[in-house]
Design a protein around this nucleic acid. Structure first.
Lengths: 128, 128
DNA sequence: ACGTATTTGTACGTATGTATC
DNA sequence: AGATACATACGTACAAATACG
């Protein structure tokens, strides 16, 4: 007994995203369409999509669709005088940064300004 | 029509946890029991429990039950020479830190040793 | 402005599998 | 072995949000 069906399906869809078959900012096929392609229940489709969303690969929007997220991982190097903290994203930030409801941002305050990055794709590296 | 049923149910259960009615390290009533108490489908119960798990309040274990997590929030102050990063928890860490499959830990490397903390209850504070 | 089609969200039911006690 | 509890997977129906003509 291998992994559950929804888990295998998530892997297949992940591969399609990473290979570029499903393109950034574009919607995946609808749940109905996926159900027909893979011959599984909608429940199984939705579980797989939820996994992908948890992994930060896609983002599902209300009566619209599930979209491939276009994000790169960012690494920030800590320096003295840098102030870094995290807070929930505002509505405007959710739009510009392509974030879901309830997502967090990381705020980086430098002397010359402030930078706001998605918390789920930002790495803070501390060097001495 | 306020929020969805599973959302309201999650709030009720959260209140019971925070009030101490459901005690740390003890199981919540089984899904069957909750279904009977609230008169909703198991699906609804499970969605509420999944929310609580996402919030870090409970942890569900295979054929055993859903347990109230006993964790305190920890705050770590950044200092020069400190290296902090995050990675998936190992199997052993999941046991000792009371974490679910797929959970992350935060690793803090100091000159005198390494500390590993649950990512969902650790706060990193950066001071200059 | 309106209705219709599409798509995701919620909620119910049922059955079976797996893990634990 | 049997009972209990969670996990997966199928099905159905309707609601809500969105898109489009």
């Amino acid at each position: 007994m291998g992994r559950p069906a929804y888990r295998q399906l998530a892997d297949i869809l992940r591969e399609r995203i990473e290979s570029g078959r499903y393109r950034p900012r574009k919607p995946l096929p609808s749940e109905l369409h996926l159900r027909q392609e893979f011959g599984v229940a909608r429940d199984t489709i939705r579980r797989a999509l939820a996994l992908l969303a948890e992994w930060g690969l896609v983002r599902t929007i209300g009566g619209r669709g599930t979209f491939v997220r276009a994000v790169d991982r960012v690494t920030v190097r800590m320096e003295p005088g840098l102030r870094v903290f995290s807070r929930p994203a505002t509505a405007a930030e959710r739009v510009t940064l392509d974030l879901a409801e309830g997502a967090y941002v990381i705020v980086i305050e430098r002397r010359d300004g402030v930078e706001v990055l998605p918390a789920d794709s930002t790495e803070i590296l501390v060097v001495e």
